[in-house]
Design a protein around this nucleic acid. Structure first.
Lengths: 120, 120
DNA sequence: GTCGAAGTACGATAGATTTCGAACAAAAGG
DNA sequence: CCTTTTGTTCGAAATCTATCGTACTTCGAC
């Protein structure tokens, strides 16, 4: 059974929930942490895939790993390895299909609040 | 200005955050609990004010008190006393002003998910 | 004035969550 | 092979959360 199961890159596999496993409550919870909301805003602003290291979060490396994992396990982002880097991107399509308008409303609200609090 | 205040609001005061104190992350956190999301859905469905006791939640009275308090302290609902009952209603206007479209997107997503999971 | 209904307050507890540092692992490039 | 970059894993600690039961308060009705 293990003849050639490893899909693409070496042996580093990442678990992602299927679309029908993504729960609204879990997504809201994932987005309710300031650090994670900032990550999602950055990903949305870029539009593509970003390596974890481009986020200069004011926490340690292991904490950063933790937050990206929460986002991935709750269905907010997709991740994969490219060399030594781990790339992340928003699961825009899946989220829009499940919860139409939700992500955009959250992102717009976050932008609005950042402007209101003087953190444009 | 007290010519005709809320009937018998005697000494029981309830703390509510002012609109500019309501944080997006806090609202998302408040909505990320299944019990609280259910409460908000019921309030939204009714459109008006409801007493806490009409919610037949599968938890104890003290836990119910806790959840309503979280919703109130995070700016999602407004509460006031009427006799022995405590009435709750959504802060639709305030939330719409701060986070346009957010509440509607969450409510629509919740309805959609309930249908998908066979819980209409 | 007494009683029931509706909630609150007060611990208490079990389980999450966020955070850290130190040790480890994989890939890329000399 | 060795080193650097990038990120993971493994405890561990501090804090937060959801939950409960019991005792208490407040209001309206009788």
């Amino acid at each position: 059974m293990q003849s050639q199961t490893r899909p693409s890159s070496s042996g580093r596999t990442l678990e992602h929930p299927a679309p029908d496993e993504i729960r609204l409550e879990s997504v809201l919870h994932a987005l309710s942490d300031p650090m994670r909301l900032q990550i999602v805003r950055t990903l949305a602003g870029d539009g593509g895939e970003l390596s974890c290291s481009v986020f200069e979060l004011p926490v340690s490396k292991s904490t950063t790993t933790h937050h990206f994992r929460v986002l991935r396990e709750n269905g907010v982002i997709q991740q994969f390895y490219r060399g030594t880097a781990k790339m992340s991107l928003l699961r825009r399509g899946d989220l829009e299909g499940l919860f139409p308008g939700l992500l955009d409303a959250v992102l717009a609200s976050a932008t609005r609040q950042a402007e209101r609090l003087g953190d444009g």
